[in-house]
Computed example of a mutant assay.
Amino acid sequence: MNTAQLDRMHSGKGFIAALDQSGGSTPKALAQYGVKEDRYKNDEEMYTLVHEMRTRIIKSPAFDSKYILGAILFENTMDRKIDEQWTADYLWKEKNIVPFLKVDKGLADLANGVQLMKPISNLDELLDRAVERNIFGTKMRSVIKEANQEGIREVVKQQFEIGKQIFNKGLIPIIEPEIDIYSVDKEKSEEILKEEIKQQLNLLDKEVKVMLKLSIPTVNDFYSELISDPHVVRVVALSGGYGQDEANNKLAQNHGLIASFSRALSEGLAADQTEEEFDTKIGKTIKKIYEASIT
């Protein structure tokens, strides 16, 4: 484990950029960027186009370690290069930004009010490759739709079981049990979730470290106990479908919680923008997210 990266993630000022749209969400991300489906004929062409988009974001002067602590990559992005360097190496060596990898394979069908992660059949091989590519940590997502005690317990248990496997490979897992922001009992789900996470943290061996990625809570500073837990490197927030301004406003009310935004980060970016227009737009976005993350 890279101790310089660990120190940066634990105590640095800034946020994590989520650039990890996977196969299912890539067409939507490209469409938002102004690249329609008639621009590519197969997955390889699609992934090449999205890598060009991500490369443009990463190489922008506005994508600066003054504001950004880390970036989450999709597996296909990890296996591609920027200026003849593996993407993770470019992020750290050229930008001083800590690289993470999305490792989950999507969501299972809804049961008990939640969507668990699908089995990650090649996880050991993927984690070994991540270590070779100088990845610092991983991210995996589950979704909570209802305040169902049994379902939420299953989600948290699955996340921590896989998280321990990831930590044993020398990587820091980002545990992401997302609560749907449109859930009618979101606040109750948050109460259950926090207690289940606390129980799992208490079961960890002393040396085990994790990160948490959570929906912005209904009650401000609701996750302060988790932020201060000795096992927790950092607690980050997903935008979860909120627009950029609303996500920033809600985040700013939660002290110590930092952003890990995807949609809110790329909002307003377009393939046909000039470099000046693109850099200006993303620069303004990054500074707003940063300000919301340092409260």
Rank of each mutant, 00 (worst) to 15 (best):
Asn2Ile: 13
Met9Gln: 04
Gly12Trp: 00
Ala17Gln: 06
Gly24Val: 12
Ala29Pro: 00
Leu30Lys: 01
Gly34Lys: 09
Glu37Lys: 15
Tyr40Gly: 05
Asn42Trp: 02
Asp43Asn: 14
Ser60Cys: 08
Ala71Asn: 05
Phe74Pro: 00
Leu91Lys: 09
Lys93Glu: 15
Lys105Pro: 01
Gly106Asp: 10
Asn112Glu: 15
Leu116Met: 15
Leu116Ala: 13
Leu116Arg: 07
Asp128Cys: 05
Ala130Gly: 06
Val131Arg: 02
Thr138Pro: 03
Met140Lys: 08
Lys145Pro: 02
Gly151Ser: 12
Gln158Ile: 14
Glu161Met: 11
Lys164Ala: 00
Ile166Leu: 00
Gly170Ser: 06
Pro173Cys: 05
Pro173Glu: 07
Pro173Gly: 05
Tyr182Arg: 15
Glu190Val: 14
Leu193Phe: 04
Asp205Ser: 08
Lys206Cys: 07
Lys206Ile: 13
Lys206Phe: 09
Lys209Arg: 14
Ser215Thr: 15
Ile216Asn: 03
Thr218Tyr: 04
Asp221Ser: 08
Asp229Ala: 10
Val236Asp: 01
Gly241Pro: 03
Gly243Ser: 15
Lys250Met: 02
His255Tyr: 06
Ala259Val: 05
Leu265Arg: 05
Ala271Asp: 05
Phe278Tyr: 11
Lys287Ala: 04
Lys287Ser: 04
Ile289Ala: 01
Tyr290Ile: 10
